[in-house]
Simulated assay, not measured.
Amino acid sequence: MTGSQLRQTWLIFSQATTVALAAYFVVSTLKPQWLHQGPAVLATLPAAAGAPPRAAVQFSYAAAAQAASPAVVAVMANKPALTQREIDADPWLRFHFGRRVPQRQQMGLGSGVIVSPEGYVLTNNHVVNGASEIRVQLPDGRETEAKLVGTDPETDLAVLRITVAPPLPVIHPGRAEDLQVGDVVLAIGNPFNVGQTVTSGIVSALGRTQLGLSTFENFIQTDAAINPGNSGGALVDAQGRLVGINTAIYSRTGGGSLGIGFAIPVDSAYQVLEALIKDGKVSRGWIGVITGDINAEVVETLKLSVDHGVLVKEVFKGSPAAKAGLEAGDVVTEVEGRQVRNPRELINVVAGLKPESQTVVQVQRGGQTLKLPLQVGLRRPQTEDGAPE
C-alpha cells in the first residue's frame, strides 16, 4: 500500500470515528436509557392501514412493569375519622393532611407489595395504623382479609399477611445501594383508589434526611408521579426489581404530586420485615447521649483537633455511654469503625447495632483521640430528637 493510500485510509477511519463518537455523545445526552441493557423493548411501530411504514422505534418499560405489577396490591383499611389533634400529633398525618381533617371513615387508603410466597406484604404503617379491618386486593381481582403481623412507626413500615389460593405473585428484590441519581425507576400503586397505576421517572436524589417524617430517614427521592394512595407501593428499577417502598410526597396542599416523592430503600425495608416476622417488633441499639452538631466555634472552644463528628451535649447516668466513659464535650467520630458526621448518622449507626452486643466508640476529647469499648443498650421506641440516643 502506497503512502497516499495509507493517508486516505487513515482519513476515512478518523472521520468515521469522529462521527461515531459524536453520535454516542448525542445519544448519551438526549436518550441515555438507550445505552443501558435491560428488559426494555425496542420495537418497530406498526403502521396503520394505508399509512406509510414507520421507521421510528419506541422505547418501553413494559417488561419491567409486567414483572412487578402482579405483586403490587391495593390495601383497604377501615379507619375511624381523624381529629385535628391526632393529625397535629403525628408527623406523617401532618405531612399528608395539614389542616384538612377527614370527616368520614375511608377505604382504599394505600398500596402494598407481596414479598414472599408465604403471603407477607410490606406496606406503610400510616396506611394501616389504627385500622379495625384490613383487606387486600390483588391486581387479578382476588380480595382477602389481611392479618397485621407488626408495625415499625420509626420507619413507617408495617407487615401484613394474606392467605389466598396459589399462584401468589411475589416481587423480586433489587439492591438500593446500586442505585445512582439518574437511574430510571417506576412507581406502582393505587393512587386515589383509581386502580393499579404505573408511573415512570428517575432517581432524583439518594439519602434524603431531615424531612421530619420518621426517626430513621434515608429516603430515595424520585420524580415518578406518586400520589395519595401510592403509599406502601413499589418503586422498581428498569428490570422490575423492588428498590423501595413509596412512602410520601411533597405537596403544598396535601394533594397531588409535584414531582418530589420519597421511598424507603428496599434493604432497610427487608431488615424491618425480617424483624417483624421473627419477633413482632424491631429491636435497635442505644447508647444514651444527647447530641448536637459541631461547627467552627465548637472546634475552637473545645480545642479540638478534628472538624467533623457529633458533639456529646449530655450523657445519661447509668447509660451504656456513661459506663463506657463518654463525657459531655466529647466528639464522637466513629462507631463500630464507621465514621459519623452528624447526629442523624450517629442515630442510624447505633440503631443498627444489636442490643447487648459489644462495640467501640471513637471520640475526640480536646486534642486526644480515645477508643472506648461499649456494650450497646436497647433503644426505647419513638424517642424524639433531643431524647437520649
Rank of each mutant, 00 (worst) to 15 (best):
L276W: 09
E297W: 00
V243Q: 08
G259A: 11
G254P: 06
I249R: 02
E297F: 05
A238V: 06
V243S: 01
G256I: 08
N246A: 14
G318I: 03
W286C: 00
Q271T: 04
I264T: 08
Q271S: 10
S251P: 02
V289D: 01
I226L: 12
V315Y: 03
F262C: 07
D237T: 02
D307F: 10
S305E: 11
Q271W: 07
A248K: 02
D279V: 03
I294G: 05
G232P: 07
G288K: 12
R241F: 09
G229L: 07
A324W: 13
K281H: 14
G318E: 11
G288I: 10
D267Y: 09
K278F: 04
A263M: 03
V298H: 05
H308D: 04
V282S: 10
G261H: 04
Q239D: 11
K303S: 15
E314C: 07
I264H: 01
V236F: 05
G240P: 02
S268Q: 15
A321C: 11
G240T: 00
A321P: 05
F316A: 09
I245C: 07
V243E: 00
V272P: 01
V312I: 15
P265C: 11
V298I: 15
N227C: 12
E314K: 15
Q271N: 14
Q239I: 00
D237K: 01
N230P: 01
D279L: 13
G309V: 11
A238R: 14
V312K: 09
L304N: 08
I260C: 07
T253K: 09
D267N: 15
K317M: 10
V282Q: 08
S251W: 06
F262K: 00
V299R: 14
G232M: 12
D307Y: 05
T301L: 13
L235D: 01
N246V: 13
L302N: 10
L304H: 07
E297L: 13
I260G: 03
I260W: 02
F316M: 14
V243F: 05
S283Q: 14
S268W: 10
A234C: 02
K278V: 08
G261I: 04
I287G: 05
G232E: 03
L304F: 11
A248Y: 08
I260R: 05
K313A: 13
T291K: 01
L235Y: 06
N227E: 02
L304A: 11
G285M: 05
K313Y: 10
G280K: 13
V298G: 08
L235F: 08
D279I: 08
V266Y: 09
S283L: 12
V289H: 05
S305P: 08
V266W: 05
I294H: 04
I294N: 00
G309Q: 00
D307T: 15
G240W: 06
V289C: 08
G256H: 04
V310Y: 00
A269T: 07
L304T: 04
S257I: 13
G233V: 12
E314S: 14
E274V: 11
A269P: 02
R252D: 06
V289K: 03
S257C: 13
K323L: 15
E274N: 15
F262A: 03
A324H: 11
T247S: 15
G255Q: 12
A322V: 03
I245W: 03
P320G: 10
Y270T: 02
S231N: 06
V310K: 01
S268C: 00
A234Q: 02
V236Q: 02
G254T: 03
L304R: 08
D279Y: 15
